[in-house]
Simulated assay, not measured.
Amino acid sequence: MLKVLIVVLLFAVIISLFSGLFFLVKDEGKTSRTVNALTIRVTLSVMLLALLAYAVVSGQLPINPSPLR
């Protein structure tokens, strides 16, 4: 369940990124939709980082310190 939530947040960040690009090209800086898309993207990224930190600290997402093992 946690990994699904991580993937959903990643897709939401990517969608927000491309919506900001679309608004930047379409509106040519006349509206604040680009800033709103950036705000949403930053918020989603902070939520994603917090979720990843929680998953690592709680042990639900193990970190492999040596990939050669």
Rank of each mutant, 00 (worst) to 15 (best):
L17E: 06
I6D: 01
L10K: 10
A53L: 10
S19A: 01
F18Y: 08
L38G: 01
L2I: 05
V25W: 09
S66W: 11
L21T: 10
K30S: 00
F18D: 00
L10Q: 12
I14S: 08
I14T: 07
N64F: 05
L10M: 07
I40G: 05
L2G: 02
L61I: 09
I15M: 06
L48R: 11
G59S: 11
A37P: 01
S58G: 07
K30V: 07
L17D: 02
V7N: 08
D27C: 06
A12C: 11
T39E: 11
A53W: 11
L49V: 13
P67S: 03
V4G: 01
P62L: 12
S32I: 10
I63R: 03
G59M: 07
G29C: 09
I63W: 03
L2C: 00
A50W: 14
P62M: 11
V35S: 12
L68Y: 09
T43E: 08
L2M: 04
V57F: 09
I6C: 05
V13W: 05
F18K: 02
A50M: 14
K3G: 05
I15E: 02
G29M: 08
I14W: 08
L5C: 09
K30G: 00
S66K: 11
T39H: 13
S58A: 13
T31E: 03
R41F: 15
E28F: 04
L17P: 01
A55G: 14
G59K: 10
R33A: 01
F22E: 06
